[in-house]
């Protein structure tokens, strides 16, 4: 079906996925102005029936998550690094998880090693309908608010729908059986959504200041350096009853050595992951972890880690690309305001 829509395919996390259809910029702008449909079935869906068994492994308040609500949380290691970032929804008395494609096997092994009973639903499909017109194209779920989750029927197909996403726009993620996904996708396209690929998904999330696991966060990045301290629930921080809590308490006392920041470049040349960040004309103080040309800003942007004393918005930096310095400035995140249906 992707190829029939003109997709160029790439391999990602062992899946053959659509990189782009009409073009990354057109798809990106369609998501910001209308609605775009992404196939993100490579993401790992799973169910943990016993929320209390999962809680010691994540930073969020999972046992306190009300029915029909979803939360972004982190699987952490003992050093306070990030094993994965994931979504947890309280549905049907259990936790519905959405895990990163490249981490789902690791995540499940980690949870099982800590005595958590996990039911994997990796064969299930996941579609993301994102953009200001998403609710018009999925009226079945229009009553949901941002980070609500519900089981509902869309044209006769049983779906798990959450009002969330990875673009900074309003929208939905829709899980369903794999054999129902194509018909559901065709329905949403017929209602006016623009097919969009992983290329636009990446530029959209970067403008929205959202981390990509494996680029911006990994097992060696501290939750606090990644500015994800907000994903540690107050109760969990106070009690310190999750893996890595002691290490993170230590980091919190002294402040992280480096921080994840947004950077806007003044020219048109993008800086990509791996580019060094320098004080203008001076020493190396950090590295770019994600970079692209931002279609909505018509300018290059990047995320990267920088020494904490250089991380204040407005600080001028030089990004080294092909041995030449490009002028940049530390910018507040997100680059583009979020538009969630709160």
């Amino acid at each position: 079906m992707h190829r029939a829509l003109g997709a160029r395919m790439v391999e990602f996390a062992g899946y053959e996925m659509p990189l782009q259809y009409a073009g990354i910029i057109a798809e990106h702008l369609a998501c910001r102005s209308g609605a775009a449909l992404f196939d993100v079935s490579h993401m790992g869906q799973a169910v943990v029936r016993d929320a209390a068994s999962l809680e010691p492994l994540v930073t969020g308040d999972i046992t306190g998550l009300p029915a029909g609500r979803q939360r972004y949380t982190l699987l952490t290691n003992a050093a306070g690094g990030i094993i994965d970032d994931l979504m947890v929804a309280n549905l049907d008395g259990g936790c519905q998880l959405v895990l990163n494609a490249g981490r789902k096997v690791v995540d499940v092994a980690h949870m099982r090693a800590h005595g958590v009973t996990v039911e994997t639903l990796f064969e299930r499909a996941l579609l993301a309908l994102q953009g200001p017109r998403a609710a018009q194209m999925l009226p079945e779920a229009a009553a949901l608010k941002f980070m609500d989750a519900a089981e509902l029927s869309v044209a006769g197909t049983a779906c798990v729908v959450t009002r969330s996403g990875y673009t900074g726009e309003d929208g939905f993620e829709i899980g369903c059986a794999a054999d129902a996904a194509e018909a559901l996708a065709r329905l949403l396209l017929a209602r006016g959504a623009t097919p969009a690929g992983l290329g636009a998904r990446d530029s959209l999330r970067l403008e929205a200041g959202l981390c990509l696991y494996g680029n911006d966060i990994d097992e060696n990045t501290s939750v606090l350096a990644a500015n994800l301290g907000w994903a540690i629930a107050r109760r969990r921080a106070e009690v310190g009853d999750f893996l890595g809590a002691a290490a993170l308490r230590e980091v919190r006392q002294h402040g992280p050595v480096e921080r994840l920041v947004g950077i806007r470049l003044s020219g048109r040349a993008p800086a990509r992951a791996g580019a060094e960040i320098h004080v203008p004309g001076g020493e190396r103080v950090g590295r770019v972890t994600s970079g692209c040309f931002a279609p909505s800003l018509n300018a290059p942007i990047a995320l990267g880690y920088i020494r904490a004393d250089c991380a204040a918005p407005g600080t001028l930096v030089a990004l080294i690309v092909r041995d030449k310095p490009l002028d940049g400035v530390i910018s507040p995140l997100p680059f583009i305001p979020h538009h969630y249906a709160r």
Partner: peptide
């Protein structure tokens, strides 16, 4: 076509 939308050349 393989490169997609080109945004910068040096």
């Amino acid at each position: 076509n393989a490169l997609g939308d080109i945004v910068f050349v040096e």
